[in-house]
Amino acid sequence: MFDFFDEIATKTGLPFEILNNGFRVINFSNKSIFIEGFVSIIKFESQEISIKLKNGVVRIIGNNLTIKNMNLESIVITGEISSSEIC
């Protein structure tokens, strides 16, 4: 995982501290979304889930959306994801 973010940091030219202190959202082929650095859940319905991040909001739209796992730092959402946007 560290190699992965190191590579991203290298390719984007951003310092690792910025990458590490913010949030991370990883979409696995619209089957599952892994979010790290979330603050709270703004909206939670089976068709839409909105999550407040440290520096923004991620909005996931789809069907049968489920919070697969949620702990202090990260959250995993599964279901038939049709779109996800970060703003």
């Binding site: 709270s40 859940i41 703004i42 909206k43 939670f44 319905e45 089976s46 049968n64 489920t66 919070i67 697969k68 796992n69 949620m70 702990n71 202090l72």
Partner: peptide, 24 residues
Amino acid sequence: NFKKFLELLKKEKIEVSMLKRQEY
């Protein structure tokens, strides 16, 4: 008001999973 409930769970560091909303 599930949002508040989930916030409290997070605050208490309770790990939850398979969270599904069936009805409102």
